[in-house]
Design a protein around this nucleic acid. Structure first.
Lengths: 108, 108
DNA sequence: GATTTGCGCAACTTAAAAGTTGCGCATGGT
DNA sequence: ACCATGCGCAACTTTTAAGTTGCGCAAATC
């Protein structure tokens, strides 16, 4: 249930690259597509896109499905919850520290 | 108000690196600290930490304050909202597509 | 005022991704 | 059967980020 550190790692690393994030967004807008279709939109080779898609899939942000001779990828938006969860957890670390200080001031 | 693409870029790129994310978390737990203090916790040189802190600051995730001869960094947890906002926006892109399809099925 | 401590600047090395190209194989169309 | 299309594998180049080391300067300490 609670996401492992490795999962968060994979997701944030995947979203760290601009081209890959753009790929993810395109996938979200267009729906299930192939690397061949995405390549011209990103102005990079099909192979480069294919690699990005594998990274996204490794991070659980996308799923691949083989349909005939094409490999269609689709986005898994639920995976973004991991990012949000991590953000909340980190914010919690911070506020917990403030609690220990007992005050209402975060500086100094 | 609405975050620019460049800002989101900077934040996600900053959080993409494991060491840098760890630095960010340490900063959240420990409160304002210097690169010198953080270095041994991360098992890397002070300079390496200093660079990470600059990247975090560029992304708005941290703020530096010069106190005497030390440079103290503190976390800006509010900046994590950008990540959450981007996640929401991307999810919206996705569901909007489903709306266009008019159906209740995301596949195909 | 001499020493210690902490930092920034800069040059460098290293390591790892991003991207390219070429090829061979499988699937679909005619 | 033949050709076209789409993909995966693999080797390679290029780019960029991560990390190190050395040095000089400014601020505390004594």
């Amino acid at each position: 249930m609670s996401s492992t550190a490795a999962e968060v790692e994979a997701v944030l690393a995947a979203l760290g690259d601009p081209t890959r994030r753009r790929t993810f967004e395109l996938l979200a807008e267009h729906g299930p597509t192939t690397a061949t279709v995405l390549a011209p939109m990103l102005n990079i080779s099909r192979q480069a896109v294919a690699k990005h898609l594998v990274v996204l899939a490794d991070g659980g942000l996308a799923l691949s499905e083989r349909v005939g001779r094409e490999t269609r990828y689709r986005v898994v938006p639920a995976r973004l919850d991991l990012v949000v969860a991590w953000s909340d957890r980190t914010r919690a670390l911070w506020s917990r520290r403030l609690d220990r200080l007992g005050g209402s001031d975060g500086s100094r």
